[in-house]
Nucleic acid binder design. Sequence first.
RNA 1: GCCCCCGUAGCUCAGUCGGAUAGAGCAUCCGCCUUCUAAGCGGACGGUCGUGGGUUCGAAUCCCGCCGGGGGCACCA
Length: 656
Amino acid sequence: MPQDCMRAFDREIHSFLSAQGIDPSIVRLDTPADRQFGERATNVAFLLKKERDQPPRQIAQDIAQGFDPQAYRLIQAVEPAGAGFINFRLNYDTFTPFVIEEVRASGSTYGGGVISEVERVVVEHTSVNPNKEWHIGHVRNAVLGDVVGRALRRAGHTVAVQNYIDDTGLQAAEAVLGLRDFPEPRREGEKYDHWLGRMYVKIAGEIASEPELRQRLEELGEPVQAGSTEPPDSARERVSITARLDNLTRLKQRILVVMHELETGQYHDVIVSLLDAQLQTAYRLGIYYDLVNWESHLVQSHVFDEAIEGIKQSPKVFQATEGRYAGALIIVTDESASSEDEPKAEVLIRSNGIPTYVGKDIAYHMWKFGLLPERLKYVEFHDQPDGTLLWSTSLEGENRSSRDPDRVINVIAVNQTLPQQAVNQALRVAGFDEAASHLLHLAYGLVSTREGKISGRKGTSVSADAVIDEAVRVAHERVREKRSADLTDEGMRQISEAVGVGAVRYFMVQYNPLRDIVFDVSDVVSYDGNTGLYVQYALVRMAAILRRAGTDHGVDGGEIEAANTALLQHEQEKRLIFQIAQYPDTVATAARTLAVNLIAEFAYDLATTFSQFYRDCGVLNAEPDLRAARLLLVRTVQSVLANVCELLGVPVIERL
RNA sequence: GCCCCCGUAGCUCAGUCGGAUAGAGCAUCCGCCUUCUAAGCGGACGGUCGUGGGUUCGAAUCCCGCCGGGGGCACCA
């Protein structure tokens, strides 16, 4: 049974305060920013000011006076401070061995097991349209979702990561149409997603030009009648535009046909090839999934039809006969919002019979939560590079006895907030309150470049593959110029890959998810300061110390095991122990709030503290007893920092 | 016009239960490699936390107004 060392400390503090006659329900402990104020502090003296009619400082003093060090194992001192804080100091003589043993015993699971209840969580992320290669915004989505999944797993939840493939949508249809009717030669070594993407961009660009063309046509005005004085240029332009518009109309009709064909599973092989290519990017970044959900399967197995039939039972869902929604199947999401106008509603199925995005999404979420009878089968899609099996929905295959999730987390960009709210609201209205309240939209901000917004449609996006290539290339250059001596070419290649991937992933998780961020490749490949490499570098130093301890100093594992932790009295050593002890709390908070940037922050802080320890506390040149104790500490920190890297998906390296 | 999110150092950003002198990285300048890897470490410079009020012993953090930026407000996805 894993223990949380900090909580053990907190329990002692609570028991001390209770013994001082303080109501436990008002006690809150926090961690002072500066360790000169101890490891924990409480503000109870401020809260008791009125009740006791005494200055907080006096109250704090009285409380602290009641402390008897003999009575507590982990508390060393209780001190009044400032205007009325009470600070608690850790007793490292007992705390240090406690933490080290805890890390040793829990190993790679250290940090978990402190949640109150194990939940089954579905995390859906990536869900990139199958039309072109990933851009940098998709990387943010996938990395965030991946780290959220990892954090929830580490915390102790049961997680299923899903990737939804909208293979019946407009985007996919445009790409498929491009390949079928306007094929372009594939370049030497070009990835399938980049190749298809080029054709998609052309088609999408053509369609996007329609309003512009129409406006231009209007500007040109009507053709002048016989005996014309109109400039021939205008006449020629009008003819040309009219011809283009006619083509556009035909193009759009063909897209509709393709969309229909996609629903029946045609071109599935094209979409699979595209997905495979996109997944290569994911796998390169260490992002893996449990299941790919295909929209076409949901359509073909009549999951959507069944869902619609189901929610039609709700009085809020009906076919509108008049007004702006005449002929469409709508769900009234907010009746109170109705002024003299119509009530607020969402269209589920258009009057032309085609379901809307929101309509499909509602049905999809009913399926996700297991609110519909399972019609889908499951097949093995392929083996992922990490050795796990990726499953796919299917029309034929195995049944899977999957229990319904307690919680569904959708990692979707912030500009999809409204449709996501609509889905939530509609689920509620349709009578699925339980599901609605356990559906969470993890919104993340847009990624722009210093040049401005990125747009997949316009083809002004930054390719994820290009960014990773560049990060790896720069890393490789520097690895080569640094030490080529004891590294093989293959060794350098692997390290560069790990450094490049680590840099990209770290960049994406270090920010508050909700915030819009400005992406600049030069920030990613600078490799100075607060980057993925900084954390990896600390690990390289730890590995070097531990390696040399054996090879150059003949220290064996047994000697390290038997080390006397009482010798770890240096300020930097205590700081390392204290930080390591806070890891379970960081994991729990990240799992609860999904603020995965806290994990990156933790990694950076721990690496920083290690750098300072590295500067101030020689390990290999210390006296043998102290050396053994420090080696034990280094091994413990290494275990935890590697553990954090595992959560972040930043690859651990042992040399540079 | 309405709704949501965001304004913290020259730039990119932390600050997730309101707490003690507001933190990093980059950039600029200075210093540290015969001793565990200098992709590192130390120091300097740099802030009326958009702005005006309010709540509080205490506000970057909570509430209200205003200003600025972004996103969203279709039978598009």
